[in-house]
Simulated scan of single mutants.
Amino acid sequence: MQPARNLLTQGMTPRKLAATVALGTVVGIVPAFGVSSAISTAIAARFRLNIAATVLVGYLVHPLQLLLAIPFIRLGIFVFGLSELRLSLDEMIAMFKADWLDALNKLWMANLAGFSVWALLALPLGGLLYLLLLPLFKKVLPQPQEVRV
């Protein structure tokens, strides 16, 4: 247990921890299944955040990803003026039976619209989470000790 804890808290300052949790949360709810780990790893590496902790936070918010996927898609359909898409299983089966190529095209466009709405909201949401979490982590994390010579 201690090695895992050390890996997750290695080099964590309140600022880095707030950025790690905000990034992991925002990327973890992306309405495109299977890409959140790759995206969070790349962004965490670019900004020198703890990759393991970022990916872990992304995994912890996966239930939110499932809950928010349909609302993101519906909002994307509305924002981009796409034709209404019925997302129940029976209606999707009927769409594929009628014309599977058209059904794939409609689902692809709806997913792309949902991803686009997520992308538009990701930066403001991440910034807000960071600003909300920073004071909390400043209180919770131990302050670095001053070295006196």
Rank of each mutant, 00 (worst) to 15 (best):
V21R: 04
L7R: 01
L129Q: 08
V140Y: 07
L85C: 05
A98I: 02
A38S: 11
T54M: 00
L131R: 15
L60E: 00
A22M: 06
N105C: 07
L125H: 04
I70W: 07
L136W: 07
P124K: 12
A110K: 13
S116V: 09
S88W: 03
A42P: 01
G126Y: 08
S88C: 00
L120F: 08
V117H: 11
Q65I: 01
K16C: 00
K97D: 15
L104A: 15
L121K: 08
F137M: 02
A38E: 09
G34W: 10
K97Q: 15
Y130D: 11
P14T: 06
L75A: 15
R5Y: 10
T13R: 04
V117E: 11
K97S: 12
I29V: 15
L134W: 02
D99F: 07
L112Q: 13
A42I: 12
Q145T: 10
M1N: 07
L87M: 14
I39N: 01
F72L: 11
R74T: 09
V55S: 02
I39K: 02
G81M: 12
I77F: 04
R46T: 11
W108A: 15
I29Y: 07
L85A: 11
P71A: 14
Q143S: 13
K138H: 04
S116A: 15
I43G: 00
S83T: 14
R5W: 13
V147G: 04
G127M: 15
V27E: 02
A32P: 04
Y130S: 06
S88M: 03
T54E: 01
D102T: 12
A122G: 08
L23R: 00
W100Q: 12
P124Y: 12
A45F: 07
A44P: 08
L82D: 08
L125C: 14
A103F: 06
V30W: 04
G114M: 10
K16M: 02
L141V: 05
F72V: 11
L132D: 06
F33H: 11
N50V: 08
L121V: 08
A42F: 06
L68G: 10
R74G: 02
E91N: 08
P124R: 13
R46G: 08
V57W: 00
S36F: 09
L125A: 15
Q143F: 01
L128H: 05
S116Y: 05
T13F: 04
L101V: 12
L7W: 02
A44H: 11
L128V: 12
Q65A: 15
A103G: 14
V26N: 01
G127E: 13
L131F: 11
V55H: 03
Q143M: 05
K16G: 00
P31V: 11
E91S: 13
P144S: 11
Y59P: 01
Q10K: 14
F137K: 03
I73Q: 14
S88I: 04
G58R: 02
A19Y: 03
A69T: 15
S36I: 04
